[in-house]
Each structure stands twice: as C-alpha cells, then as structure tokens.
Design a protein around this nucleic acid. Sequence first.
DNA 1: TCCCGCTTCAAACAATCGTTTGAATTCTAG
DNA 2: CTAGAATTCAAACGATTGTTTGAAGCGGGA
Lengths: 206, 206
Amino acid sequence: MNDPRFSTKQRILGAAEDLFARRGFAGASLRQVTTAAKVNLAAVNYHFGSKDRLIEEVFRRRLDELNARRLAALKGAMAGGNPQLAEVLAAFIKPALDLSLDREGGSAFVRVLARAYAEHNERLRRFLSDNYGHVLREFAAAFARLLPRLDKEELYWRLDIVAGALTYAMADFGVIKRRSGQSERDFRERAAEHLIRFAAAGLKEE
Amino acid sequence: MNDPRFSTKQRILGAAEDLFARRGFAGASLRQVTTAAKVNLAAVNYHFGSKDRLIEEVFRRRLDELNARRLAALKGAMAGGNPQLAEVLAAFIKPALDLSLDREGGSAFVRVLARAYAEHNERLRRFLSDNYGHVLREFAAAFARLLPRLDKEELYWRLDIVAGALTYAMADFGVIKRRSGQSERDFRERAAEHLIRFAAAGLKEE
DNA sequence: TCCCGCTTCAAACAATCGTTTGAATTCTAG
DNA sequence: CTAGAATTCAAACGATTGTTTGAAGCGGGA
C-alpha cells in the first residue's frame, strides 16, 4: 500500500497527461481528469492549487528527466574528442524517443508537448523557457562547433526546422501509420532513424 | 454598404480565425468571437448552425484557395518536362507562405492549421482528409516520380517529416524572431528559402 | 486511548459555456 | 407603399466550468 507511484497526486498527473494530450488544456475539464483518476474533484486544488499549476507539474514530471538524459547523452557524444553530427542529433532525439516509449503515459506526454507549442500561451512559454532553455542553448553550442562553416543565423534556422520536425514526428501528427505486424517500439525506432538521417543531411548541406 | 467582405458572416469568420489561433478551438468562446466581430451572439448559430460547423468554415474559406494554388503551381512545375525537386517543393510551400502573408488574417490561419494537427479531433481530421486529401496524394505522386530510387515507404517518411517542419515553421512556433529592421514579408520569404533548401537536401539524401 | 495533522469527501459557489427563443428590425421584391 | 422574407437583437435555457467550503475519514505518535 501507499506506493507513491499510485498516490493521488500521481494518479491525477497521469490522467491529466492523457486527457490533455487527447483534448487539449482547455478541452479537458478537471471533472474529466478526476473521474479518470478515480479521485475526488477537490483533490486537484488541494494538491496543486489550480488547473494552471497542474498543467505545469505535468510538464515538470517528464521534462526534468528528459532533459537530464539529453544532457548526459550530449556529454557522452562530446567526450570522444571528435563527435559525429549524427551522435549529437541522436543525443537530442533518442531520449525523446525513449520517453515516447515509456509504458506509463510517455507517448501521451509527447503529444502534450506538441500542444504546448501550438498554445502560444505566454505563461506556459515562460515556464518552459525558464526551466529548460539552457538545454537548448547547450545543444546549439555543440552544433555550432560541429558545423563551423555555418554562420550563426543559418545554424539557428536549421535547428529550428529540426526541432519542428522532431516535435511533429514524435507527436504522431503524421500520416504514416504503424503496420499491423510492427511493434510500437520498432515503429518509433524507425521513425527516429529516418529523422536523424534526414536532419543530418539538411544540417550538413553546402 | 453591404460589401460582402464585411458581412456578418465574414466578420465572424475573421474573428474566429484570430481567436482560434490564439486560444484554441475549445479556449475561444462564441461570446469572445461575436464580441470581437461586433456581432450579436446568436448570429453564429444563425449563420453556421453550431460552433463545430463554424470551425469547419474557417478552414474551408482558406483551404479552397490554398490548395487550388498549390495544384496550379504543381502543374506549372511539372509542365516543363524535367521538373526540379526544389520547384515541386516550392509549389507546396510557397502558396502557404503567400497565405501567411495575406493581410486579412492569413498569418492567424496558418496557426489555426497547426492547431488542427495538435487536435486529434476525429471529426476535424475526417473533414480535412475528405476535402483536401487528394492534394497531398498528387504531391506524393510527383515526388515519387522525381525520386525513383527511393522506395515508397522511405519517401512517405521523408514527406511526413517535411510536412511537419513546414507546419511548424509557418506557424511561428520556432525560436527565431524577426529582426527589428526586417519586414514580415522578408522574414517569411527567408523562412521559405531555408525550408526548401533543407527539405531538398533531406529528400535527396543517398 | 485520545488527539492532531493530513487527506478525502459531497455539496455548493458564481461564472461561463453553446444553444434556443420570439419579438424587433432591416432588407427586398412586387 | 406594402407584404413577406431575411437578419439582428436582448434575454433566457440548462449544462458545465474552476474553485471553495466545512465536515468526515484516516493514520501514526503520545
């Protein structure tokens, strides 16, 4: 009993993640969330204070680990001395892939993440920028060292495009569907491979 | 007077487009829409029947012309006999760019379009697929002729990535901001150029 | 055992939601 | 000018929203 993995707080976060992914932040009501979590309606305001703060906690729970993995993978890729472009790209993309394979709602979360981009919500953007902006800056610096012939503006443009393609691909927005024989893991890994090769080609160009 | 460009119907569509872009379909209420449009609340249900049908009309108004332009540009690119990859890409991307430059809400609409992807709303997806799926199929066929060495699955993967990057870039999700001296048109055209070159490199790879 | 802090609960709060109504107004064709 | 259709209007509908309340239930230390 009392396993913190199934605490009221975690059950709310899990149900919120799922419903935010499927119906959006405004589209999913607290009553839907608490019903799915098998929790009393008032528990959200008791544990989180408000719906906005619940949304922030949904992000924090996943992004803390995601970005730690990304930075660790980046450090690993840079350690060898002469890192390959594909390695650095993989350091950014693979942890997101792993997250999307997490049995407990990870694939829902990447869709929530994509929604966060679509929402031009100022409060949410500032929260994400304040808490996780340094990760993007570290990767930008790494790419700058790998592609010294690209001027800064050109590099930023291309990284921006890569980030867009990644967000879109991870959230399953695309038209490509998994074939019936194929496992989810297999499908995701294939997607990451295609994405890394495509992005590497676009980044290296000229 | 009675200019159809400023009719009740069009004013509602314009206001809805703007508010859907900023707050999402669920996040923007009909009261906010009708207030912004300087129109009575009941006018939405009188002219469109329901909020869902209003959403569909917001898409139809822009997509009819967008897709007609895309198909015309594609026909132009294929007419020469030996079309370049960049031309076909431009036929797909440039009309979206032009739309995003339309003074009357075009830039809001591309953000609405991006939201449509984030919403996994079944009704909306079917509406878009039914009405505009044939455009994507025509472009896929054109790319298949241009890249005969890629097998079908590989091609679909890459087109999927391109579509994601385009959606993302057009909706201004990225971190790149327009410099103060730069005009909106200039910025958008630069974005399209980067996107076309990046996508062409990724599509041609190997 | 009793007590106290933590958590859960049913119920209600005012506000806002999409939609409907029926009368008032405006437009248009004869 | 007038009849009738098309449109706009203020008001209200029941349902649902996020949040608050105060009492009930709970578990562990004295």
